[in-house]
Design a protein around this nucleic acid. Structure first.
Length: 264
DNA sequence: TCTGGGGTCCTAGGACCC
DNA sequence: TCTGGGGTCCTAGGACCC
């Protein structure tokens, strides 16, 4: 989220969940004013400060607020209550649910004959768990009913730090691939140091010209921020991939992060 | 979006330990 | 030597989000 955007939202509440560059959840439940009035003020302030319009959804939870914000773009303001779920949420395509992407949409349609959120919600929990597993099946069961008890996440630490690059022209020159990998590692190490993180698992990702993507990972015994150690692990990973086809993308990720204790 | 980059979470299988 | 169950860690891939 940009600093300007953050500053404007901060005028209204401190309970803000940052969702990427241009989206956020605000908990305004403790503000006395009517929600719609607050939303109008937010829209006004954003326009003043950034000259941009925005769409706002107001609902009892994040799931519904997200859908609501999407219903009247651009420059919309949509309120959804529990009572609206049947009439306004159930007729929507299942794809509108957060977490339902193109793959699941196609599967629902072609394998199960399900197109709308309502049709999804008509399925028993057991069926969804059978099809999608405990975790995602359970999620779909609740989400299709508009149930979402999740809290706003106002602070979080990264789980991984990565960089990747797609070549303008697919490469088969190992030297050039290696050179790019070294540069990506330098970038990742810089970000790690800026954030005060050390990591233990190094993953190298390679996408070939046919778009097939492979990863190789190596977990070290100790947390490290050493560019040399990370480079060694990364090249070990790269060595385990057969570079027979032209390479379209290369990337490196450090995960298993640990925050360095602030030393005064 | 004939397909960019930085992330998260989940699953499944294998290794290893008790 | 074989048997068994459960837990944890690691790896690889995939779906999804903005």
């Amino acid at each position: 989220m940009s600093r300007k955007f953050k500053a404007v939202l901060g005028e209204f509440t401190q309970t803000i969940e940052d969702v990427g560059i241009d989206e956020a959840f605000l908990d305004i439940s403790s503000i006395e004013k009517p929600s719609e009035e607050i939303a109008k003020e937010i829209k006004g302030r954003i326009r003043e400060q950034t000259d941009l319009s925005c769409s706002i959804g107001i609902a009892p939870n994040k799931l519904l607020a997200k859908i609501a914000s999407d219903l009247d773009k651009p420059d919309g303001l949509t309120v959804i209550t529990e009572e609206d779920i049947e009439k306004r949420i159930w007729p929507l395509p299942a794809r509108k649910l957060w977490g339902v992407g193109p793959k699941t949409e196609t599967y629902l349609k072609e394998k199960m004959g399900i197109k709308t959120i309502g049709e999804l919600g008509a399925l028993p929990l057991e069926r969804l768990v059978e099809e999608f597993g405990q975790s995602y099946g359970g999620y779909l069961y609740e989400a299709s009913r508009g149930i979402d008890e999740s809290e706003l996440v106002t602070h979080w630490e990264p789980k991984s730090i990565s960089q990747e690059t797609t070549f303008q022209k697919d490469l088969d020159n190992w030297q050039l691939i290696a050179k790019n990998l070294v540069e990506l590692i330098q970038g990742v190490v810089t970000s790690m140091k800026e954030g005060g993180y050390r990591g233990r698992t190094v993953t190298v990702k390679v996408r070939f010209t046919d778009f097939k993507t492979y990863t190789r990972a190596k977990t070290l015994d100790k947390f490290t921020e050493s560019e040399g150690e990370i480079r060694k692990a990364a090249f070990d990973c790269l060595g385990r991939l057969e570079l027979k086809k032209k390479v379209r993308l290369i990337g490196v990720r450090i995960s298993n992060l640990e925050k360095e204790e602030a030393t005064p």
